[in-house]
């Protein structure tokens, strides 16, 4: 079986030494501390003498939110220097003059980074298993959440790869990647709030379309759906709270968000591969007509 050589090389280099193990350890420590804090709080609830399955909602939400934030921060960091770093090390030309297709270089880099995130997600499973002590959350729901994490991480990673292939310097690529991430999360929310502030009336029951691109909206809608439309998080986001009160029918926002992420990933990978290809084939509509 032919494994992408870039992926193999990246995996070897990334996993070498204490850095990779250190990242996993630090990640788990953060998650574990959050879990201990939330679980300790639940045990010390003076109004309850038994373990309440409903309380797992709090622990699960806290863990899910922390993991979501960590992934959103880590994924771009792992990919924003993927191609620009090769440029800075002057090794990109050496890859490009081999017969390796540019999309293999891009995919190798992306998958290597995402593998590291998947490692973090898998490593966090034992911490998540604490929830089973309380009950109320099924394995299928955790699998659903982890799938959401992985697809979101791939999309965030492709934004990093996109800027990395377009920028000469990793610093510029990193800034633009986080800037785009911030826009997708906070910018779209801000626009939605303004839009709804101006146009909202009692008949407005739809989610503002731009918010389907927002990973936070997708995440909140997923968690809310898992809790049967309950949960305080949904109240923060325009349109999301209504979605699960039976007023809106159709596909869940988190599924639309994942479809958007998938399409975005394909688009960004294609553009990145095209950008680094030294022999770009002109798209026919842009070809100059021969006189």
């Amino acid at each position: 079986m032919n494994i992408n050589p870039v992926l193999l090389k990246e995996a070897k280099v990334r996993m070498r030494g204490w850095r990779a193990a250190g990242i996993v350890a630090l990640y788990l420590v953060i998650l574990a501390l959050v879990t201990i804090f939330v679980a300790y709080d639940s045990y010390n609830n003076i109004y309850s003498s038994t373990i309440d399955p409903g309380r797992s909602v709090g622990t699960y939400s806290a863990l899910a939110v922390i993991q979501f934030i960590l992934i959103l921060f880590i994924a771009p960091a792992l990919t924003a220097g993927a191609i620009s770093g090769e440029r800075e090390k002057q090794t990109l030309d050496l890859l490009l003059c081999t017969k390796l297709p540019t999309r293999s270089i891009i995919l190798g880099k992306l998958v290597a980074s995402i593998s590291q995130i998947i490692l973090l997600i898998i490593a966090s499973l034992p911490v998540f298993s604490v929830i089973f002590m309380f009950g109320g959350i099924s394995i299928a729901e955790i699998a659903q959440l982890f799938m959401f994490y992985i697809i979101t991480a791939i999309a965030a990673g492709s934004i990093g790869i996109f800027y990395s292939s377009h920028m000469k310097k990793t610093t510029a690529s990193t800034v633009l990647t986080y800037g785009t991430g911030a826009f997708m999360i906070l910018g779209t929310l801000f626009i939605a709030w303004i839009y709804m502030g101006i146009f909202r009336d009692n008949n407005y029951k739809e989610i503002f379309p731009l918010l389907y691109a927002n990973p936070l909206v997708g995440f909140v809608s997923l968690i809310s759906e898992q809790f049967g439309g309950q949960g305080s998080l949904a109240g923060f986001l325009p349109g999301i709270g209504r979605t699960y009160t039976g007023t809106t029918k159709g596909m869940s926002p988190w599924i639309i968000n994942l479809i958007f992420d998938g399409a975005l990933t394909v688009l960004l990978i294609t553009l990145s591969a095209r950008k680094i290809n030294p022999v770009k084939r002109k798209i026919s509509i842009f070809k100059k007509k021969k006189i």
């Binding site: 090389k9 070897k12 280099v13 070498r16 090390k89 002057q90 090794t91 030309d93 050496l94």
Partner: peptide, 10 residues
């Protein structure tokens, strides 16, 4: 090329 282009971590 006229530069090294080597991966130092290999």
């Amino acid at each position: 090329p006229d530069f090294f282009g080597v991966y130092d971590d290999l």
